[in-house]
Design a protein around this nucleic acid. Structure first.
Lengths: 224, 224
DNA sequence: TTTATTTGATAGCAATACTATCACATAAAA
DNA sequence: TTTTATGTGATAGTATTGCTATCAAATAAA
């Protein structure tokens, strides 16, 4: 059985639904690869079109501009990750165990699941680390937020915040701690690989150390 | 007495030293204002030139491109902040008191010190919150780092890491905790103002709450 | 078989990101 | 006082980016 994971995306993120056609799926697939290779600043629809073998105008039929495409990809990622979390923490009663599992999922490089989607989750994970914050660090955050573009991110944050509150109902900052975990799972990874002196993991460059750091951080706060 | 605070900048960041001429200082002053108003993506040398009353080519005589200018401004900010920290924690023996003071400085909106420099520190602080990470979240981090562009940031992180180690010599992640404090002082501020559901401060939007959160986070970790 | 949908191909335009050149003013050096 | 160096202004030009519009061919649905 080959099960198709379909993530319901916000309609305002695209002009034409990229999941609805071959070209659309190609745009998603190759944009992930190209952003990964070239970085978001150097990424253009022209280059993407050439890579796919279509024209610039063809891309514009699906996405208004590259910012919307980036927001689409990040939203997809957060939706996908929330599914992964609900899947992997299913049937776990102990909220601390659940939270540890969540931290693992956040900070672990994902393997590409070739069966389920045309998107390479492993590359996308790297993109989220390097480019993810650029989706909201803009002048238009307000409007984008009003259009619910960041709902998947906020939902995920709420889910984690709830697990935190389960661990310790008196803890005062569940949402801020949740967003801290999410951001730091990525930033410490980026720092470790590119600006190692900002971390304590420069020598080994092991994800497991980031996980240990985050666990220490979180459970110190919750078990005071 | 009017004391001139001069921050020694990395020579590779500029073509011609902007501190060395009136036009140069104007570039710094107005670029801070323009990036603040328009955001970094919409900021161009053309617009800056028009605002100053010079030409595009005039700006290029000082900065190779807008990325270098952003890196310059962030480097300046971190240098300035390290000075503020060493100034305001001078003569404090107790490392915990020192660390609290540091968290305050990181998370508090600075007032512009019109006397000392032509740069509006208050606007620059806002720029660092919204655009700061774009200085290093690029494909060229490696080369930029080799040229020591991020030294002021790394130095600041080292300073804070040392205070953390003074507080608790057995704590295993002083540098990662330091970079976490720095980043979160800014990100929680950005979230509070633009994506409030990612924080616990959406109702009040008070900086003091971010400070309380960071203090709780840090001293829970250090006083286990 | 008609009609709607999707794509490819081409054109074009305004803005961006630069580089190059010449001339003028001014201030320091000879 | 003349020479020389320095900083700025003005103009021009080019490649790329970001985006819109139009037309025709191919394919699939009605």
């Amino acid at each position: 059985m080959k099960l198709q994971l379909q993530i319901k995306m916000n309609e305002a993120l695209f002009v034409r639904n990229p999941e609805s056609s071959e070209l659309g799926k190609n745009i998603l697939k190759h944009s992930v690869e190209l952003i990964y290779e070239a970085g978001f600043e150097a990424f253009t629809f022209k280059k993407l079109a050439t890579k796919i073998g279509t024209t610039e105008a063809g891309i514009y039929r699906y996405f208004e501009n590259k910012h919307k495409l980036l927001v689409y990809l990040t939203a997809w990622y957060w939706g996908w990750l929330e599914f992964q979390i609900s899947f992997h923490t299913n049937n776990i009663d102990n909220p601390s165990v659940k939270l540890k599992r969540v931290i693992n999922l956040l900070a672990t490089a994902v393997e590409d699941d070739e069966e389920t989607t045309h998107i390479n989750e492993s590359l996308l994970h790297q993109i989220i680390i390097s480019e993810g914050s650029k989706a909201y660090l803009t002048k238009q955050v307000g409007e984008d937020n009003q259009q619910q573009f960041f709902k998947p991110y906020k939902d995920l944050c709420a889910v984690i915040g709830n697990i935190i509150s389960e661990c310790n109902p008196t803890y005062k900052y569940p949402k801020s701690l949740a967003s801290t975990i999410i951001e730091m799972a990525h930033f410490q990874n980026f720092f470790m690989n590119h600006l190692p002196s900002l971390t304590d993991f420069g020598d080994t460059k092991e994800e497991s150390e980031i996980i240990a750091f985050l666990n220490d951080l979180v459970f110190s706060s919750l078990n005071k």
